[in-house]
Every structure is written in C-alpha cells, then in structure tokens.
Design a protein around this nucleic acid. Structure first.
Lengths: 98, 98
DNA sequence: TTGAACTTGACTTAATTTGGTCAAATTTAA
DNA sequence: TTAAATTTGACCAAATTAAGTCAAGTTCAA
C-alpha cells in the first residue's frame, strides 16, 4: 500500500470527492489526482490535515510518506533491494550508538 | 559499512593518499575527505573508476551508493525503519508484476 | 448520452541538492 | 616539533525536485 493508495482509500471510504478533499488541503484537484497515483509528492504538512480529516494514524501516514520517497529512489535500481538492506543495517547500527 | 567508509578502507588498504585518489577522480582532496565521511555524495560515474582502481565489485559500490541516499532520507525519522519495511514490500510487490 | 468526476500533459516558479572549490584549522606520524 | 595529511567551514553555480496550476481528454454512473 502506497501513500497515494491510502489517501484514495480513506477518501473513498467516506464517499468524499477529490474536489472536496482538494479544497480542504487547499490544492487543485488535478494535483490531488496525481498524489493519489503517486505521481507527485505531497507536502508533509498535509499529512496532519489528512490524519485529522479521516481520523487516521499520523505515524502511519508519515511512514508511507517516507516510504514513497525511498521507493522512488530504489525502484529502477538493480541493486535496490540490497541497498535497502544495507540502509536498514545502518539505521539499526546507529540506533545502538544513541 | 557506508560508501565513504568503504572508499576510505579501499584507499588505505593500498596505502594510497587522498591526494592521489582525488587526482585519479579529478576532484579536490577536500571534497574527497567529505565523501569519505559521507558528508557529500559522489557522482555515480566515479564508482566505475573506484571499482577499477581498487578492483572491487561495482555492484557492491552501487548498492552502498544508493544505500547512502536512502539512509540520508530516513536517518532522522522516527518512522524511518518502518518506512524501509514498507518500501521493501513495495519493491517486492512490483518485482512480481514485471 | 451527457454531465460530473477523474486523469493526464504541458508548463511554471521556488526551494533544495549536487558537486564541487579553496583556505584555514586540526590531526598524525617521523 | 614540524611537515605532511586530513578535516572543516564558508562559499558557489548548475541541476534537479517540489509543489503546484490549468486546460483538455477520458471514464463512469444514471
């Protein structure tokens, strides 16, 4: 599940139109459409509004938001999956140092 | 192990000075110093030269190079580790679709 | 079959990142 | 202890990405 898919899911589960959610976020509906298909990144601040609008976990949205950026970085890479594993090691290693 | 650490390790294992490697890569030694401490990203093309200079796996260098960028993205994030797991799912899912 | 909802493509401006340089400060080894 | 090696900080131009808009095209339900 990507961030775009999650936003669309949340929106549709409330029967809300793109136009409506777009106006809540103060963006155009064309842009929201692209966000929902992960063609454009969303400002981080918008996550808060989405979390509140649909009463959905902010942390989960945040994880999806970061994951989208990570995925964009590795998606066309042969070594993408290996790189993820290396990065995971680095994160875990650094956590122990704190 | 990060890309910078790996480069430094390879360089020192041959007893090569930064000045020397920097000149091979046609960059300044100040810049190389920052690359070795992961403060600056290296051009991807340089990986080829490094691989040849030290006779070290290009793919492994590439994985480290991507991993560094991924790590930069998640290192200060509370949800970083979760995001990595989500991204990994997405990569694996997409691989099956191809 | 037509109107509302949605998607797409082309474009834009502003902000950020890349990929460096150079001199000064610091560290290391002989 | 001093000279060579390395690190750091301040700076920079060029390239890329972010974060949109808008109009035209497409899809879908009634």
């Amino acid at each position: 599940m990507t961030l775009g898919q999650k936003i669309k899911q949340l929106r549709e589960s409330k029967g809300m139109l793109q136009r409506k959610l777009a106006s809540i976020l103060e963006i155009g509906d064309g842009f929201l459409s692209k966000v929902e298909s992960d063609q454009k990144p969303l400002k981080r601040e918008h996550l808060k509004t989405i979390s509140e609008t649909f009463d959905y976990s902010y942390n989960e949205l945040e994880a999806l938001w970061i994951a989208t950026k990570v995925y964009d970085l590795v998606k066309d890479e042969d070594e993408g999956l290996n790189a993820l594993k290396v990065a995971e090691e680095q994160v875990k290693y650094h956590k122990n140092q704190k």
